[in-house]
Structures are given as structure tokens and as C-alpha cells.
Design a protein around this nucleic acid. Structure first.
Lengths: 200, 200, 200, 200
DNA sequence: AATGAATGAGTTTTCATTCAT
DNA sequence: TATGAATGAAAACTCATTCAT
């Protein structure tokens, strides 16, 4: 009853729907979310959802697309070529974690849901792959005399895995962005020596 | 029809069922897996599943329990106190990644599925939390003059996140165990310097 | 296919469904009635039943509620205070038996089914208890110098039991309303002497 | 595990099974009772039930048969021709209500369950019909100058209905046998005048 | 005589999806 | 544009019943 029967321009409706969908998907997961629940959250009728997005799958795809774009927009400005690699890493790390902190639902949907749902891993994985390659390149370019046996790609996987794990804790409100960024930066640059000599 | 209609002793059937369940859950995820599909895979009738495990939820719980035990059994022997911390880490890393490599479905079920399913995160998260604390302790004890601002717990989260990400690639057959173990060990001990001086 | 595929307003469909449900419940009993059978009888799809009534239990509850209301509406006008007690009893008896005669399915559902189904005895028993108390009061108030050892409540139970048994025969088409009403009235007022001196 | 694997003579086993079946049927009703539950209660395996009784329906039939015989055996001695009709009624009433009081489960199964279950009403109804005819005869024979319009059969239905309703309360432990028998006897012989003149 | 093991057939319930207005 | 009404298809779960030992 709340929303009435307003005629809204397409663009507005689209956002309203995506907002609702992201909200509910983030809360309950893809499978446990029904179109009914999304329609209710958006305060519109179910046929509207189908009119605009065709199917649950497409709606979810639209969600991860929008949130993915937001994510990229938030993180990409970090690649400022005037900075040293370490500064670049630091900036990127911070904007990444900050985005997660401020857009917990985005993170949930993109990471927790999309990554797990067979039908969508592809979409997310490919973006992720790009990011990994990017980081791998960055690592390689910032390393003098690279050891030929050294696999930068795997290293990038590990670093990003570390980042995601930490991001997950941030999304859960368990740790703070600044602390996490420092720590990850140190881990990358110095390993566990960060806190003092490690006994070997 | 494939498997015939033998009368099997309870213990055997239990394993046969769990094998099938793990297989299908790993392939399709918890929600997308129907009891029918599991019964078909195990070449038995659905009521047997219910007779032995009571419900889909309990069946899945039995899966993660069995795989969890396997996992712990495979990894725990690593804690040999005669080794240096670094050797301990190296051994643990290797047995972890080796287990994942040889039990890809276990990893899928335990990590990808159980972690995502609202109803089961608890079970897995608590084990994970224990592991994280363990690693945090290990880090702390192996560090001289620990920086009081240093948060070993977050560091453990990051390292384990890195490990999980790498394990995921191993489960996907994309990278090799030995290489991955070296790399993670180095990351932990030396950061990115591993491959040579990093320009700052 | 028989009934066409019209879009009916909610209120109409509700009644159509209840009609079908009462029909089938009365015929087969609660347990032996499947939602499929009711849907078929109502010439609609099963999901509609769930959309409107939520569950088989709630659907049955809705049935006994509607029939209960009908019953009360049919019987309650009898309580006209201008009549003598005996006239009141006579009127009430007649409207009760007449209702049963004209709404056999209602009686079946309310009495035979609802009374027997563990989950619903409560609902019906409490109405019945009220009726019994009402009758007990009526008996007490219409009796001069009541014997203090006399248990009006048990008497009410007996009389209502007699009424129900007779109603059951009426619902079965075995006896006629007028005759039954006379007889019960006499039984209440005069016992078996009704037909002449009883040898002791 | 409790019962072990004793070899019992057929007759004993049969009773053991019927005891269990009556117990569970009385508690949960026919439909809500599973063969599993009965087997468990009897502490035997399900195939035994089928070996002895063929099907759930036949098992239930055996229950109502045995309980019906018990019932008749308990009540029939009442028909002592040396007694006056009123004494006969009094004796019969008492033995009936006493039986119900001491065999609540029998009553539950015979009256509440069997009467409601489509497939069994026949069996019980025919016994009931015989009883009704018996009472009708008794009424007729004990009445001088019977009013030709007087329907003794309906009167018998009413009286037995009253008796059943009261018996139900006795089975529920709500009222005592003696009181109930007195009351029903008075109701039959004197109507509500039992407690003093009724205002007309 | 007795049972552990096994299942076919059915039940309630849910959900993505589509008409008719 | 917008929706109330409606459903096909499938999922989880149960139960009476039987077979092989």
C-alpha cells in the first residue's frame, strides 16, 4: 500500500528495483530470495520485475553488473601513474577496502553470492581474473631482476585472496579499514617481518 | 538400475550415500542439488536418504562433518614441535594444499558451499575461527619483540584468505601444489621481496 | 478444464474454494483429502489454494470457521426471551436440526471431521463447551427447587449428545426433522414416559 | 533392543501386537498412526505386523474386532430376564459406562476412530444398529399402550447418543461412572423432571 | 519365525513465470 | 504503465508395503 501506483520514468524504476534486489539478495542469498520478496521490498508488482528484467537470473545479473561497475568506479582511480608502486598499492588497497566498508551489500552480492552461484561465477570470475592480471603486472613491473621461476600470477591470487578475506571481515563490521589496509600493505611489502624479525 | 539392488550393510551404504552427496553438492551447490539427484547418483531410492540422514540439511551436515574430519586428519599431523616455526608452517601449508589437490570435492563442499549456506556458516566458521586463532598464536610466538599495535588476528585472516584463494586454484587444477606452497611460505616470511628487491 | 479459466474477484474465489473444500472434506475426511482433490473439485490449481489459505490446516480451519458461523447464525435466533423455556428449547431444537438437515456437509465437517482431528478438536470443543454451559444454565434456571446433587452440566452433555446423535441420522437422511424435534423435546421434558406410563 | 528376538507362540504375539496397535491408534488416530510406530510400540519388526495382519487396514479391523468383542462381553451379561426393565437398563448402563471407564483406549478406538474412518464405519455402525434395535425393543416392550406415532427407534438413537456423549466424558476422566449412570437412568425414566418439577 | 534393508507412490508446499485487464 | 489472478513444474518429505537373508 505504501508506494501507491505512481508512474515513474523507466530509469528511476530500474534503480528502485535494483536497490531492492541487491538488498534482498545480499540478505538471503540468491536461491533463498524469491521474486515475491524482491517485489515486496521494491513496493511494486512482480510482473514489473519481469517486464524490466525478464527473469530472476537476468535480474541478478543486472545487480552484479551495477554493483560491479560501482566497484570498479570506486577502485580504479587508484591507478595514478605519478605515484610509486607502493603508493599505488596503498591507494588501491584503501579504496577497495573503503568501498567494501561503505557498500557492504554490494560486497555481499558480488563476492559471497555471485561467486557461489554456478550460473554467475563466470561473470565475476572474469572481472576477478582481470584484476589478478593487473596486480600480477604491477608486481612484475615493480620488481627488479625478477626471478624467472617466480609466478607473479599466483602471487596476485594470494594477495587478492588475502584482500578478500580481510574485506569480508570489514563487511562484517569486525575490523576497521585503516588498520586492515596498513596490514595488507605491510604483508605485501615485507611479509611477517612487518612486526620485527621473524625467527627462522 | 546401474548398480543392481544389493543389500548392503548400513555402514557401507552410509559411505556410498555420502560419496554421492558430496559429489553432487560439490558440483551443483546446496540449493541446486535435489535429493532426487543425490539418490540417483548413489543409485538408491530417495527414502533411503531420509532413512539414513533424516533431511537434506542433516545430509549436508553429515557431508561437511565427514569431509571436515578428513581435512583435519590430513592437516593436523603437521604440528610437529621438533620443527622450527617456519618448518611447521611449511609442512602445514603443504599438507593443506596437498589435501585440497587430492580432495577437490571436499574442498568445494567445505569451502564454497558450506561457507555460503546461511544454515551452515556457523559450523564452518567456528572451525575456521579456531584455525585463525591458531595461526595468530603461531605468528605471535614466532615474532621477536612484537609491535604492540600489530594485530596478529587480522594477519592470520589475511594469510588464511591467501591460502584459501590459492587452494581454490589448486582445486580448479590451475596451479600446482609445490609451487603454491613455496610461494605462500615466502609471502608469509618475506612479503613480495621474495623475488628480489621491491622498489618502493 | 471444465470450468473455464475466468479471473474471479478474490471474494468469489474464496467461497468457491471453501465450497469445494467442505464438499471434499465432508466426503472423505480431513486426512484422506488431498489438496489435489480439493483443487480439482474447485476447478482451480493447487497453488491458488495455498495462495488463499496458506496450508491444508488453515484451509480446513477456514472451512470449520465458515460453517461454524453459518451454524451459529442459523441457530442463535432461537433465544427469544418472550417464549417460555420449553418453547425456547423447542425452537432451538428445531432450528438446529433443520440446519443440519439443510446443510449436511456442514454438519459432517463440523461434527464428524473437526471433532476427530487432533489439531482441531480444540476449536470445536470450546464452542461445544459453551453450548453445554448454556444448556446447563437453561436447565438450572428452568428447574424449581433444584436438587443440589443434580449435575446440570452432565445432563447438558447427555442432552446434547442425544441431539448430536439424532442430527447425525438426519444428516444421513434416515429420519425427519419434525419427528426428531418432537421426540427430543419430549425426552427432555418427560423422559420415556412420553408415550405412556413406563413400568418400573 | 529391549525386546530381544524371542520366539513367541502365535497367539501371544497376536495379542502383543493388538495391544500395541490399540494403544497407538487410540492415542493418534488411524491416519496419524504409522505402521512404524506400532511396530516400535510392540517392540517387533514391521514385517511381523504384515505377516500377521496383512495390511494396516486389516490390523485396524482386528483391533476394532477384539475391542468390540470385549465390549459386548462386558455389557451383554446385563440382559438378565429376572430383572425389571428399569433394573435391566440400570445394569446395562452401569456395565457400559464402567467398561468405558476401565477401557478408555477401547472406547477411543471403537468410538472416536472407527466411527470416523470411512472404511470402518460400516463395521461399527452395524453393531451400533443392533444395539439401537435392542434398546428400541426394550423401550417398546416396557411401555404400556404405546402411542402408535411414537418412534422407539429414534428414541433409542437419542438415548444411545446421550450415553455415548457421557461415555466420552468418562473416557476423558471428566466425570464419574456412578453419577453418570444415575443421571442417564433418570433422564430415560423421567426426563428433566428428575430434579423437580420443570416449569412449562 | 523374524528382521534389516529397500522402495513406489503419493503428500504438502514453494516458486518462477505468465495472462487478462 | 501496471497489476491482481493464476499455474506448471518441481522439491522435500512420508508411508504402507515387500524382499532377501
Amino acid at each position: 500500500m505504501a508506494g501507491g501506483t505512481k508512474r515513474l520514468p523507466r530509469a528511476v524504476r530500474e534503480q528502485q528495483m535494483l536497490d531492492a534486489a541487491v538488498e534482498v539478495f545480499a540478505r538471503n542469498g540468491y536461491h533463498a530470495t524469491s521474486m515475491d520478496a524482491i517485489a515486496a521490498e521494491a513496493d511494486i508488482s512482480k510482473p514489473m520485475l519481469y517486464l524490466y528484467y525478464g527473469s530472476k537470473e537476468e535480474l541478478f545479473a543486472a545487480c552484479i553488473h551495477r554493483e560491479g561497475v560501482r566497484f570498479v568506479e570506486a577502485v580504479s582511480p587508484a591507478g595514478n601513474p605519478n605515484l610509486t608502486p607502493r603508493e599505488q598499492v596503498r591507494t588501491a588497497l584503501f579504496s577497495f577496502l573503503d568501498f567494501v566498508d561503505k557498500n557492504r551489500q554490494s560486497w555481499m552480492v558480488l563476492y559471497r553470492q555471485a561467486m557461489t552461484e554456478q550460473a554467475f561465477t563466470g561473470q565475476v570470475q572474469s572481472s576477478r581474473e582481470m584484476l589478478i592480471n593487473l596486480v600480477a603486472k604491477l608486481l612484475e613491473s615493480s620488481t627488479k631482476n625478477p626471478d624467472p621461476t617466480w609466478n607473479f600470477s599466483v602471487m596476485a591470487v594470494a594477495l587478492i585472496g588475502a584482500g578478500e578475506a580481510v574485506a569480508d571481515r570489514i563487511a562484517g563490521g569486525e575490523i576497521a579499514v585503516g588498520e586492515a589496509a596498513d596490514l595488507l600493505e605491510n604483508l605485501a611489502w615485507r611479509g611477517l617481518r612487518a612486526s620485527g624479525p621473524v625467527r627462522d
